[in-house]
């Protein structure tokens, strides 16, 4: 039983890491209806920039500020150069453009910062500590804390600030937002910048977990089932989806995996998410999509 709880908690905390990536998707999808496949390469780009700036001898906080500036700039440039020109195109075209974008950002990041694997030490011990007989990873706990702060911060931003309100307005109804004088382009630029910020947080945490390397872009594939499960439009959905996926994935790996010879973590989340979809086609927390003929 203790082992079960340990696996469960480990899974839940791992799930938080998925949620971090998923949140970046939700931000952009909500405000502009684009499924941003480049989120993964943004995570890589952020982590790469950060470690490279650190390696140049900059102190931690300066590297953080500089990387944040870079990510915000990247987001704004993406909006200005790519998405603005694709307004009114079908969703699949936009999606493809973000795949192109992800290839481009990967190339760009590795061209600027090189492609060797970097270690990233955030100064947190990854020694599990004993909590009533259950071993919990400190690092995971720290990551969960970060995620919680991020979610709280985002929800404050969305609900208490003028620009946050405008963001939600745009997400609800583009046209009406335009009619009251909300400049869509600024709002989209802000969303991309925010997604860049989320990518930075995810990049730092994932980077210190896996090392900063090309494989970081693959976290996208972990985030997608979280999105299906939680719904593309809901931040709480991204969190809860992440928790469910993380926990069941670990449990399945431990309890079901051995029967199949392991390695099921690649597809199991998708099948799980699919099973949920059959019951709720818009995800657990996704906005109901009303179709009329």
């Amino acid at each position: 039983m203790l082992f079960f709880i340990e696996v469960l908690i480990g899974g839940l905390l791992a799930g938080v890491m998925y949620s971090l990536v998923a949140m970046g998707f939700v931000l952009i999808y909500k405000a502009s209806g684009v499924l941003n496949f480049a989120q993964g390469s943004m995570v890589l780009f952020a982590a790469l920039s950060f470690v490279s700036i650190l390696a140049m001898g900059a102190p931690f906080w300066l590297a953080l500020v500089l990387t944040l500036a870079i990510m915000v700039l990247l987001g704004v440039v993406i909006e200005k150069v790519v998405l603005r020109r694709l307004v009114n195109q079908p969703q699949i075209t936009l999606f493809m453009a973000t795949i192109g974008l992800s290839i481009l950002i990967e190339g760009l990041g590795q061209m600027i910062w090189g492609s060797q694997v970097h270690g990233l030490d955030l100064g947190i011990n990854d020694i599990p500590f004993n909590f009533y007989g259950v071993f919990i990873s400190q690092f995971d706990l720290f990551a969960a804390g970060c995620a919680a702060v991020l979610v709280a911060g985002l929800s404050l931003f969305f609900h208490k600030t003028k620009i946050g309100r405008a963001l939600r307005a745009v997400a609800d109804d583009h046209q009406a937002a335009m009619s009251v004088g909300i400049p869509l382009k600024h709002v989209w630029a802000v969303v991309w910048a925010a997604a860049g910020f989320v990518a930075l947080v995810a990049g730092l945490l994932w980077g210190s977990r896996l090392g900063v390397q090309f494989a970081l872009t693959l976290v996208v594939l972990k985030a997608l089932p979280v999105l299906i499960l939680g719904g593309f439009t809901s931040i709480p959905g991204a969190i809860i989806g992440g928790l469910i996926i993380g926990a069941t994935e670990k449990l399945a790996e431990v309890y079901i995996g051995p029967y199949f010879g392991g390695g099921i973590e690649n597809w199991f989340p998708y099948v799980l998410a699919l099973a949920f979809l059959l019951i709720r086609p818009d995800g657990l927390f996704g906005e109901k999509h009303i179709e009329r003929v």
Partner: peptide, 25 residues
């Protein structure tokens, strides 16, 4: 300023938040 046909409120915002978006500019 235009008030569009079919009302076009921001459905997920509260009434007061809707009003506040009007003061955006």
């Amino acid at each position: 300023i235009q008030v569009m046909e079919g009302r076009h409120c921001f459905a997920h915002l509260t009434v007061e938040e809707n009003l506040l978006t009007g003061a955006y500019t």
